[in-house]
Simulated scan of single mutants.
Amino acid sequence: MKLHWVQNEIAQLRRAICAQEREIATLQRAGVSTASAELLLARLRAKVDDLCRERDALRRSAPAASK
């Protein structure tokens, strides 16, 4: 169950990253500072990286748990 939740959270964050990248592009075209938006994007990417590590650990432990 936890693996499924982590996978869904990764998918949701990846959609948020795409939206944030589009927002940054829009702000850059408008000539507006994007520093805070880029910081948010970095935090989103770091969170996805953490969740991917957690997902990989859950996948490795799943076969061992069933034995």
Rank of each mutant, 00 (worst) to 15 (best):
M1A: 07
M1K: 02
M1N: 03
K2V: 07
L3M: 09
L3R: 11
L3Q: 09
L3K: 09
H4S: 12
H4D: 12
W5F: 10
V6W: 02
V6Y: 03
Q7M: 11
N8Y: 06
N8M: 09
N8T: 05
N8A: 07
E9L: 13
E9Q: 13
E9H: 11
E9D: 12
I10C: 03
I10T: 00
A11S: 12
Q12N: 14
Q12W: 05
L13P: 04
R14A: 00
R14N: 15
R14Q: 14
R15E: 15
A16C: 06
A16W: 04
A16G: 01
A16S: 11
I17V: 13
I17H: 00
I17D: 00
I17K: 00
C18H: 09
C18I: 09
A19L: 15
E21K: 13
R22F: 00
E23C: 03
E23T: 06
E23G: 02
E23A: 10
I24V: 14
I24P: 05
A25Q: 11
T26F: 13
T26A: 15
T26Q: 14
T26G: 12
T26E: 14
T26W: 10
L27C: 01
L27M: 10
L27H: 05
Q28Y: 05
A30Q: 15
A30P: 02
A30D: 13
G31P: 02
G31Y: 04
G31V: 04
V32I: 15
V32W: 01
S33M: 00
S33N: 15
T34R: 05
T34G: 08
A35Y: 04
A37Y: 07
A37D: 06
A37S: 15
E38T: 12
E38I: 03
L39Y: 04
L39G: 06
L39A: 09
L39P: 00
L41F: 12
L41C: 15
A42E: 09
A42N: 03
R43Q: 10
R43D: 11
R43V: 06
R43T: 05
R43L: 10
L44T: 00
L44C: 04
R45Q: 15
R45M: 07
R45T: 04
R45C: 05
A46K: 08
A46R: 10
K47A: 14
K47E: 15
K47C: 07
V48Y: 05
D49A: 13
D50E: 12
D50P: 01
D50L: 08
D50C: 02
D50W: 01
L51Y: 09
C52A: 09
R53Q: 13
R53K: 11
R53N: 08
R53Y: 02
E54R: 10
E54D: 08
R55C: 08
R55I: 02
R55K: 15
D56G: 00
D56V: 01
D56S: 08
A57W: 11
A57M: 14
L58W: 01
L58Q: 07
L58K: 04
R59P: 03
R59Y: 05
R59I: 10
R60H: 13
S61L: 13
S61P: 00
S61A: 09
S61G: 05
S61F: 02
A62N: 09
P63C: 06
P63L: 07
P63W: 04
P63E: 04
A64T: 06
A65I: 10
A65P: 02
S66D: 11
K67H: 11
K67D: 14
